[in-house]
Structures are given as structure tokens and as C-alpha cells.
Write a protein that binds this DNA or RNA. Sequence first.
RNA 1: GGACGGUUAGCUCAGGGGAAGAGCGUCUCGUUUACACCGAGAAGGUCGCAGGUUCAAAUCCUGCACCGUCCACCA
Length: 720
Amino acid sequence: MMEKNFKAKKVEKRIYKLWEKSGYLKAKPNDKKEPFSIIMPPPNANGPLHIGHAVFVSLQDILIRYQRMLGKEVLWLPGFDHAGFETQVVFEKELAKEGKTRFDFDKETFRKMLLKFCQKHKKIAKKQLKVLGASCDWSKEKFTLQKSLVEKVYDTFITLFKDGLIYRGERIVNWCTFHGTSLSDLEVVYENRKGKLYYIKYPLKDSGFIEVATTRPETMLGDTAIAVNPEDERYKNLINKIAILPILNRELRIIQDKRVDKEFGTGAVKITPAHDPLDFEVALDHNLEKIKVIGEDGKMLETAGKEFAGLTTLECREKLLEILEKENLIDKIEDYNLKIGVCYKCKNPIEPILSKQWFIKMKPLAKEAIKVVKKKEIIFFPSYFKKIYFHWLNNIKDWNISRQIVWGIEMPIYECQNLKDKIEFPYFVSKKKPKNCPLCKKCNPKKIEDVFDTWFSSSQWPYITLGYPNSKDFKYFYPTSVMETGKDILFFWVARMIMMGFYITKKPPFKKVILHGMVRDKDKQKMSKSKGNVIDPLAVIKDFGADSLRFALIFSQDLGQDPVLSEEKIKSQRNFINKIWNASRFILTKEKLPQKISENDFKKIKLTKADKMILKELNRAIKFTTKYLDNFKFHLAAQYLRKSFWHIFCDLYIEKAKIQLKNKKLENNTKKILLFSLITYLKLLHPFLPFITEEIYQKLAIKNKKDFLMVENWPEPISF
RNA sequence: GGACGGUUAGCUCAGGGGAAGAGCGUCUCGUUUACACCGAGAAGGUCGCAGGUUCAAAUCCUGCACCGUCCACCA
């Protein structure tokens, strides 16, 4: 017996268990079938799923279920990410609530605590993916820290190392003084902040002054030159003259460099090689000394002068300005809007600091990654992301992959203790600690403390999770069919996967890239915890069911646009689901329904006008849904199906059918068509609304059906 | 400073050279073999602005405006 309303909560849980038990979620290489594979973007194992996860599950599950019904051998491989920096930040916040910090624990203890934390959240997230209806193969679940994967990550690193693509460089890096680590360029965000532009006079050795403008006076303590544009007439006669750095009295040569903008400030720039990326480059070209005056803790070093050592940069600035003022060396101070780089997590200003870090040379990798997309071996949906991708790769800089945090995969690099101060590069790579140091043959080499940027392991995700190079899964499912993820991680993840995947496996890691937007609230605001406008997917599911949420998420917007979600929208889709339920109830509660139904039945029987109308509509629905799904136009498919089912099938045909059922001659045929239509719609709707469609399918009392709708054949247009 | 999206009914958005569409909201009517989480019907839009191409433009082209996003070393 069917209840009056569809009880999503109860049914969905039961149905998922049935799917799991059925074994149909599992993928096995099968040469008789065409493969279709998606590697799931692994959720961070550091908190419950958010609405963004619901978006990717909706889209990917649609593709997976559609392809499964098309008869392909389908793999959707789930996994979870230890998410190094992200997780450490979340975890430290939790610790702070108990009044503790990471410094209260030794490294090993802290790591154990974090692992426990991840494992706890992995379990929760897994349960939640099931609640969302993700039809993935749990037998192949992966975790970024599992031994077998870490081994592969090391293999990749060692390959890159041997190929000369890894180097240890002293560069200006983005240093977060709050978190005590370097960050990649992508982990720095820029904010507009009010600041000042200080015009400071540096005395010339001979006589007179040269004036420079700076937003950060305290960095002047690290100045080692002054630069002007070669074409700047004002300074022609000062080239190669010597200026004196105030307070420290260091001699600074006035040099020419075309990177200097004549129009800005005074046209003369103080050069601080150890604390500014551009100055660093200038210094390299002109062979200038690099004096580090700010330390990793954000405080001034001894090199800044005794009176400043130990002060924070801001304290130093104030004291410095006071002195300069006294000495009459400040010409003027202007208000200035500056863009300041801040840590994307804590929003504290990033300190550009000269530091030794491990880098990957990106240019060679980027070249291939560009080529593979140009050759259309990888296709982007929507296609305009291709341009953004090219632009980034064409301007790519080397990637700093070493992090000075605790949580992450340790870098497999060792330092020879005998040679560490004697040779320039006392390092070697090794997956395991060797008994004998390969460099000096004597010492007990020390593993370096750094861990990998999490994205370094993530960049290898598709091929390492499939068991590159020898597993059956890798050979059968790689390159994967589709990579579907958020547009916000196009550079962080997608571009890097293409580079690494292609470099290591010589094949693109996936054939198609699908990018979705970021969910916004009904005022089009980004959802964030601090704004308090987040929609918790699990809470919504409790009220309206996973099907409603999934349909609402994909219904409105084209791919790549930011979906706008509100309770109203979810409710509206819940109503649609209830409509499906009730139309089914109307049909399935009829007595003496046909026991068997096939698409050939309608060639033989006499059809009324209404019968023909709905059969034609079914054919159209099949055609459009298939076309839209093949082109990743999920919203159009959903919109079409809703309209077709509700306003054509229910409002027109079922209403007509009520009359036809009263006519003894038409009664049986009408039942047949009602049932056939319903089954067809269930199949078409199943990728979008897996739970309710499966539940109704399970209630069908016909003989020629499969045990699950999930593995039914995708419908094709019929002739009648 | 560059690039990429968007601008269509009160609201949220589809559509994309040949008679302006949906959902929600509003109004009127309706207890009918499922569904009020429903049905029948109605009102409501010079498709951001200005040019151009075309027999025909919301749709293609050019420019502009506004909103949003990303990228970039102006000290």
C-alpha cells in the first residue's frame, strides 16, 4: 500500500542499503563493456560535508547513474583528503577552545591526534555521502595518507627529482607569521587596505638627497640599492652614485633597471632584496647583497640594527619614522590604498621573506598541459574555462611544495650530517631511511622536517588511486572519463592534476573537465560560516529528502554559474517529488494492471489521440534528456523532465486516462500506456532523483523487470 | 591594469536568428478515480543602453554602463 505522501527520510536510508547490498555499486574491469570512470574529489576529512559537496555529488551521481544505465562498466571512486594545512588550522581552532596550542604537544603526539581527528571525520563524511545518494564503489575507497598512496607520491617526487625538476631554492616566499609556514602563491589572497605612502630622503654621499617612496618604511633597513628607470632624465646624473642608508649608514649604489616605473612615487625605488619579490629579481640581475632583516616570527632581526631587533614590523616602523622625522628625512606622507597579500586562512599579512624552500620547475610541465588541452585530449565544460586555464599556465611560476607545518606527508629528503656545512647540496631522496648515507657513506642522515603541500599529493590523485602503473583498474579505467569539481580549484587542483598526470603516465588523467560554481544564498551572497548564511545539506535532507536537495541544486543554473539555493527552491522540488509519488500511486493502485510490458506492445493496439500524444511526448523526453545529459546540460534535462512529467503526463494524459478507464474497450490499453509511461519517466528521472524512482520501481509488479532501477536500460524512443 | 561570466515577468532563473518561457509570488474559479506538496484560467516583459549585420535580432558583431568572479610585482 502506498501512503499519501512520500516519506523521504525513511525510504532513502532503506534504499541506499539495498543498493549497497546489491553489489551494483562495485566496478570491475570488463573487456566486453565500455568503461566510464570518475574519481571523486576527496572531501577534506576535517568536518561535516557542506553544500558544495552536495553539488558535486548531485552532478557526478547523475553522470554515473546515467552511464550505468547506458550499460557501461562504471567506476566512481570515493576518497578522503587529510588536507594538511586546512586540517591543521581547523584542529588548532578546536584546541584553542580548550585553551591549548600545538606547542603543548610533541610532534608525534600531535600527529597522532590529527590522524584520529581525520579518521573520525572520514567516517562522518562517508555516512553523509551515502545520505546524499552517492552511488560510488566503497570497496575502492581511498585516503591520502594510506601507505600505498604515500608510496606512490614518493615515487612521483623521486621521478621529478631525478629528472631535475625539483630544486631547493632561496627565494622570496609567502610567509605566514601566524601559522609559521611558507605558502604557495595560490594560498595568498589580496585585500584592499588603507595605508600610507612615505616619501623618504636618503642623503647622497657627495651632497644632496635622493628621495624614495615606500609603503613599508621598516624594510628600508634591508635596502642594498636604489633603482631608477634608465630613461628617467631626472636621475641620469646620479647613476652609479652612492646614497647613504639613514640610521644604518650603509652605502647604496644607485642603479638603473627598466622594471622601475617612472610615474610612481618619485621614480626612485629602494631595493630590499630579502623582502620583496621584485627587488629580489633586481638584486639577482645586479648582483646585490640580500640582507634579511625580518625573521620568520615577524620580528626584526639583529641585522636591522640593535635598536630595532626583536620589535614587530609595526613597532619598528613607528620607531623608525620617529627617528627619520627627527633627522628631517621624511618629505611627506600620503594616504594610499594598498593591496596587501594575506594568508587565505588567518587573513594576517603575508611577509615576503627570503627563505630556502623546495620548488618544482613548472614551465616544462605546463607546456605539456597546454598542449594536451589544445589537442582536445581534454575538453572543458563550460569551454570558457579553457582560456582561464591557458592564461594561468602561460604565466606559471615555480611551485613551492614544502611546508613548515606538522600535518602532512613528510618529504622523503635526507640531509647528510657530515657534509651539511661543506657542500652546497647535502641532500638526497629516499623512500626509506637508508642504513648508510649515500653521500658520505658514514653518517646517520637526518630527514628534513618539511611536509608536502597537500595539493602535491592531490595533483596525483587520479592515477595513484587507480593503482598506477600495473593494476587492472588503472589499465581499464585510466584516463578517467570525467573530472567534475568546483571552479574555485581550477588552478589548485585541475591544472596540477593535468600536469602531473600527464608527466607521470604520459596520458591525460581525464578526458573531460566539468566545473561547477559556488552555491550562494537567496541574496546571491557566498555562503560562509562567518556570515551565518550556510545551508547545511544534512539538515535540509532531514526536512525534504536528498532527492529534493539534489534536484534544487542542479535545476536552475547552467554549469559554471553559481547556483542560488533557498529553502523555497528545495520545497518546490519536494512538491514535484510528491507529484511523482502520487501519480505513481494513482497508477499502481489500479486493479488488474498488465503483468508484462514491452515497447513493442503499442504497434499492435489501437491508440486514442491522447495515447499517441503521450507516446510521442515520451519519445521527445527520451531524446532531449539524452541529448542534454550527453552535453552536460543538467539543468535543461531537469527542467524538461519536470515539465514533461508534471504538465504533460499528469495534467494532460492522466486526466484523459481517467475518462478512458471508464470505457471497457479502452481500459486495458490505457493501463498499459499509463504503466509504460511511468516506467519510462522513472528511468529518465532516476539519475536525478535516485531514491524516489527506485522506491517506486521496487513496487512495480511486472514480470519483465530488473531487480533494480539503477541497472535498468536507458530508454530509447519507440515506434507505435 | 588585464581576462572571464552576468544583465529576460514582482522575485529566482531558463532560452539563444524566424509569433517572448518556467518555477515561486499575485488574482479568479474548482471538494473530479492520485496529489491542496492539487487542478482550470488570468494579469504581468519595448529581453541593461547605443550603434551595426540581416528579409528577420532577446539571440550574431562593435562600443558603453552596471553587478559578480578570477588573474597581475606598481614600490
